[in-house]
């Protein structure tokens, strides 16, 4: 039954990666900003959840009330005041990509340094719903199941918003072609900022969920950024469904690889899959562009 446990664990992990990658897809696929400080927002969310759970002894889910607005507002400010000037000065998309990589690489260290200065370099974690839960005869921790359910609900809400609201439609148009979107009277900078900020809120919320079952450190953001980037590229940039599939694939591979080979090699397994996909389909599993 251990194999089945690993599969189930992989599915849950994949679900969370999907949520994290969806936020990055909004930032990179829609707002065209390659954000290397992305994973730092996972850590930010984790710290706030840790504060609620370990310090205030409340449910970490309360952290959503704080972290979603913070994630949204911070990301909006970052887009408006740090990224938009780069968008305006870049002669083409390649130049913008290079500039945004550099600027957000700097931002990564500012955020990481802040975490270290405020919280220090320890490993953080807290215990919440840490009892097993039986499903199809297999045991899974209750906190993981809850995280998975919340992540699924969030993804569905996001999907509905993108599908059925006016701003959602504008954002989808932007993902296809920012120039044409501008021609049909979509306020491109405004909706790009909205997409970027929504991505930030989403990933910070994902940080809360992740912290319920994984311990974390001030320096842990880089790993999340890397994994989110891998998922987005594998799924095809701007393709949310592709990202979902890629995320589940990665979660499963990581969990199974950890079970069959070694839990210390998860990143190596991720990279291996990444290389194979890139060599086989350079534009991602479902990439159209």
């Amino acid at each position: 039954m251990l194999l089945f446990d690993a599969l189930l664990g992989g599915l849950v992990l994949g679900g969370l990666y999907a949520l994290i990658a969806t936020g990055l897809n909004l930032q990179y696929g829609v707002a065209r900003i390659m954000n290397l400080s992305y994973g730092e927002f996972v850590i930010l969310g984790s710290f706030v959840a840790y504060g609620f759970s370990a310090q205030l002894e409340m449910s970490p889910l309360w952290a959503f009330l704080v972290i979603v607005p913070i994630g949204f507002a911070t990301s909006w400010l970052i887009y408006r005041y740090l990224m938009l000037p780069l968008v305006r000065r870049a002669p083409n998309l390649d130049a913008l990509e290079a500039d945004s990589i550099l600027a957000t690489f700097g931002l990564l260290f500012v955020m990481q340094g802040t975490f270290f200065a405020v919280m220090g370099g320890n490993i953080f974690g807290y215990s919440y719903l840490a009892f097993p839960f039986e499903i199809f005869g297999s045991k899974i921790a209750a906190n993981r199941s809850l995280a998975f359910v919340v992540a699924t609900v969030m993804a569905l809400v996001l999907w509905a918003l993108l599908r059925y609201t006016r701003p959602g439609t504008a954002i989808r148009a932007l993902a296809v072609d920012p120039v044409s979107a501008g021609l049909v009277a979509i306020d491109v900078p405004r909706y790009a900022a909205l997409a970027f900020a929504t991505g930030g809120a989403l990933v910070a919320a994902a940080g809360v969920l992740v912290s319920m079952f994984l311990s974390f450190t001030s320096a842990g953001g880089v790993i999340f950024t890397t994994k989110a980037l891998i998922v987005v590229i594998m799924g095809g940039v701007g393709n949310v469904m592709g990202g979902f599939v890629a995320a589940i694939l990665l979660g499963l591979a990581e969990s199974l690889g950890g079970f069959l080979i070694d839990p210390g090699l998860t990143l190596a397994i991720n990279f291996l899959i990444f290389i194979i996909v890139l060599l086989w389909r350079p534009k991602g599993l479902f990439g159209a562009r």
Binding site: D94, I101, V222, T226, L229, L265, L267, A268, F271, P282
Partner: peptide
Amino acid sequence: RLSGVYFTIFTFGLTELVRQIVTW
């Protein structure tokens, strides 16, 4: 052989990757 951003992403994770393999 791909666009520059793939290369950057890969190198971004490479340090962590080599470190993980060495530790393992």
